[in-house]
Computed example of a mutant assay.
Amino acid sequence: MSPPSPPSSSAPSPATSSATSPVRSTFGDVLPLLFVAVWSTGFIGAKFGLPDAEPLTFLSWRYAAVIVLMLPVVLLLRAPWPASRAACGHIAVTGLLVHGVYLGGVFTAISHGLPAGITALVVGLQPLVTALGARAFLGERIGRMQWVGLALGFVGVGLVVAQKVATVAGAAVLTMLVPAVIALLGITAGTLYQKKFCPSFDLRTGSIIQFVPTLIATVAVAAMTETLQVRWTGHFVFALAWLVLVLSIGAVSLLNLLIRRGSAVNVASLFYLTPPTTALIAWALFGETLTGLSMVGMALAAVGVWLARRVSGK
């Protein structure tokens, strides 16, 4: 009788482990860059869509489209829902802050005439504000070099948008700043809240939980402040499709993954790269001017993000 064969093991062989580890490492390295590239295209939606719809009306259609697209996916794939009502509540609050307050503030500011450069500069404060909040709210320790990186990043963003900011003057800008500041507070609070209370959840069901209350709140405010009218031009349809598929589904999923994997400060520091990336896209697609000062700012922003993220190796 031949001896019994040794039992098979479910553990991966060393060869398999060594093969998959570089893949995971590469994905982790590419994920932040992919997020920045995708998130930075959000200006396309504002550029093409806002002339045909008021900001909250535009966002309401965007949120509704995401729900319509994601709900069949959730049902067909039987994606898992959160285990408790409390978990659902935390995810919903995150959605209201990140989508409702942040996007509502940004779109309202731009639609009321605040230049995109100033909007980017205000929202560009987010990594610094998040760092302060992460220290108090999450107990994250922030090293000296991280603070240096955050400061360099903000200076870099300021240089990138300096030309556009310099062309705007007048007291009216101060009133336009209010929704931009609200947007800053929304994205900061949303990042911190998600990291503390719901860092990990299924992205498919999570999107439904986030966008349903956000849609209800946005429609309610839009009904009181806007006409709810839309001109269904080709530009508007393109902008809506882009924002739904690329931003609300693609970029937001990447953001949730980043929050799950890294510290709040590391995630927030990536937002320093969005104004420079947006400027590059605008230069390539629309022929907008890139000055030498802007190029210096891009370099400073990149160095700042590298320093802010290098400390913890994320």
Score class of each variant (00 low, 15 high):
289 T>L: 09
233 T>Y: 06
216 I>K: 00
141 R>K: 14
241 A>R: 03
41 T>K: 07
148 V>F: 14
312 S>E: 15
182 I>K: 05
241 A>C: 13
112 H>T: 10
178 V>L: 15
280 L>R: 01
46 A>F: 04
128 L>Y: 05
46 A>S: 15
73 V>P: 03
187 I>Y: 09
142 I>P: 06
107 F>S: 01
65 A>K: 05
175 T>Y: 09
180 A>P: 04
267 V>S: 04
25 S>D: 11
36 V>I: 15
301 A>P: 06
190 G>Y: 02
158 G>E: 09
65 A>W: 05
314 K>Y: 08
234 G>V: 08
31 L>Y: 12
238 F>L: 14
259 I>L: 08
272 Y>T: 05
60 S>D: 07
75 L>D: 03
158 G>R: 11
160 V>H: 04
307 L>S: 09
100 G>D: 01
250 G>Q: 08
201 F>A: 10
84 S>P: 06
94 T>E: 00
75 L>W: 10
124 G>Y: 02
168 V>R: 12
131 A>T: 05
220 A>Q: 07
216 I>G: 01
62 R>W: 01
282 A>R: 15
201 F>V: 07
174 L>C: 09
279 A>H: 07
28 G>I: 08
84 S>A: 13
185 L>C: 14
158 G>Y: 08
53 A>V: 02
286 F>T: 09
21 S>G: 05
106 V>Q: 02
180 A>M: 08
223 A>I: 09
10 S>D: 13
269 S>M: 08
200 S>G: 03
286 F>S: 04
211 F>T: 04
219 V>W: 01
216 I>Y: 00
126 Q>F: 07
36 V>R: 12
307 L>R: 10
143 G>H: 12
174 L>Q: 11
295 M>E: 06
185 L>I: 13
262 G>Y: 14
289 T>I: 12
96 L>P: 02
6 P>C: 05
276 P>G: 02
18 S>V: 02
162 A>M: 10
264 A>D: 05
292 G>H: 06
90 H>D: 02
179 P>E: 03
54 E>T: 09
282 A>C: 11
54 E>M: 07
266 N>G: 15
253 S>K: 04
310 R>W: 14
232 W>P: 02
295 M>C: 15
237 V>K: 01
166 A>K: 11
64 A>K: 04
122 V>L: 13
196 K>D: 02
227 T>I: 06
160 V>M: 03
170 G>T: 12
70 M>E: 06
227 T>N: 14
39 W>R: 02
7 P>F: 13
